[in-house]
Design a protein around this nucleic acid. Sequence first.
DNA 1: GTGGTCTAGACCACC
DNA 2: GTGGTCTAGACCACA
Lengths: 127, 127, 127, 127
Amino acid sequence: MDNNYNNYEPIYLQIIRRICYQIFRGEYKPGDKLPSWIDAGLAFDVNHNTIARVYQELALLGIIETRRGEGSFVTDNQSRIDELHDNMRDDLISTMVMEMTQMGYSLDDINQAFSRYIDSVSEVSHY
Amino acid sequence: MDNNYNNYEPIYLQIIRRICYQIFRGEYKPGDKLPSWIDAGLAFDVNHNTIARVYQELALLGIIETRRGEGSFVTDNQSRIDELHDNMRDDLISTMVMEMTQMGYSLDDINQAFSRYIDSVSEVSHY
Amino acid sequence: MDNNYNNYEPIYLQIIRRICYQIFRGEYKPGDKLPSWIDAGLAFDVNHNTIARVYQELALLGIIETRRGEGSFVTDNQSRIDELHDNMRDDLISTMVMEMTQMGYSLDDINQAFSRYIDSVSEVSHY
Amino acid sequence: MDNNYNNYEPIYLQIIRRICYQIFRGEYKPGDKLPSWIDAGLAFDVNHNTIARVYQELALLGIIETRRGEGSFVTDNQSRIDELHDNMRDDLISTMVMEMTQMGYSLDDINQAFSRYIDSVSEVSHY
DNA sequence: GTGGTCTAGACCACC
DNA sequence: GTGGTCTAGACCACA
C-alpha cells in the first residue's frame, strides 16, 4: 500500500477517502470485515487511534458498522454505498465547475478544457 | 462579499484563491493597487495578520508585488497571471479525474457524468 | 423480537432489562424456566456467552436462580420481583426529574411538560 | 465544580451534558467564549484531549461554534439552543414513559407514580 | 495562546 | 482479540 500522505490535509481524512474508494471499487464488499484498529494502523502506517477516528467517522457516514468486541464491517446497505459514491462524484464535478466559473471560465471554456484533458489522457492510455 | 469560510481548509488559503480569482476575472488589473492589510481584513472579516500572510504568499506566487511603504500591487507580468490561471485550471481538472478514477470510474464514466452535469447546469441557466 | 441494540449501552445491560421487563409483565412467571444460553442467544441475536453474563447478573439481582445442569428459573420470591419493579420505576422517575432540574426546569415546568406528554399520548391511543 | 463521574457512561458524554445544561441554564449565553481546552480540562479534571472531543461533538450538535486559533463560542442561534433544550426534555420524558410501559405500567400507573414523586419532592423543598 | 492532529501507551468492557 | 476511552505529551497551523 502506498502511504504517502499529503501535508495539507489531515491524514485521517485521506485514509477515510481511501477506504471509501476501496469499498466503492468493490475491494471490500457489503458485510466484509475491515481490519482491526491495530492491523489497519500497521497497513496505513499510522497510530491505531487515528484508525479509531477514521472508523468512527466512516460509521457516522453510514458506510461501515462497528460492533463492540467484534469488529468493523462494511454496511450491508448497498444503496447507502451507492448514494455516497454518487454524492462524492457529483461533489467533485460541481466543485470543479464552480471553482472554474469563479476563475472566469464560461461553461464552454470548461467543457473544452475538460475534453482536451480527457483526450490527452486517453491517448496515453492507448500505448 | 460572502465571508463564509470552509472549516476544513485554512482561511488564508481560501482568501488567496479568492484574490487570485478576482485578478483572473479582471476585477484587479495588472498594476492595480490592492487594499491595505487593514481594509482587506475588514472586507474579508479576518485579522489583518491573516491578510499579511495572504499577500506574502501571493507575492511568492509572483502574482502580486509588495513595495514597502507603498502597498501591494498586481504584477505587471500578464503572462505570469495567465500561467497561474492555466495551472489552476489544469490542476482542478486533473485532480478531479484522478479522484474519480480512484473511485472506480472509467474515463467514459467520468465523461458521461461530466456531460450530464454540464447539460443540467446549462438548462437551468437558460431560464 | 426487535433486536436493535443501542450503541451507547452495553448489549448485556439492554438484554437484562428486557428480561426483567418480561418477568414484570408476567410473560415469565415465578418458577418458570428460562431458555438455555444457546436458545436465548439465538432469540436475542447475540453470542451465548453474552447470555451467560446476563443470567449471571440476573441471578445476582435475585430475580432468577441458576441450577447447575437444570437451567435458569425465575425466582419464586414474588416480593423480590415486586421490589425490583418498584425500584426501577422510582429510579426512572427520579433520574428524569433530576436531569430536568439540572437543565433549568422547575418542578412546575416538569409537571406541565409531563402532563402535556401524557395528554398527547392518551389522545393518540384513543383512536 | 463537582467532578464525580459516573462509571457507566464515558466521561466525555457526561461533560457534554453538563455544558449543554450550563448553556440551557444561561450560565453561558449566546456568543460567550468557552474556556480553552486547557482551562476546561483543568476545570473538569480531565485531559485536554477529552475536552477537544467534547467541543467537537458540541459543535456537531450546533450548540457551540469553534474558530481556529480563536476559541470556542456558544452559538448565536438561540433557537438552536431552545430546540436542543426541548428535544432533550422530550427525550427524557418519552424514554421514561416508554420504559415504564415496557415494565407493564399503564399510563394511569405512570401518572400516579409521577405525581407521588413530585409531591414528595415538593414537600421536602418546603422546609 | 488557541484549536487540531497525531503518537504511544494504558486500561477497560465486551464478545 | 476487538472496539472504546483516556492520558500525556508533542508538534503544527492559525489568529
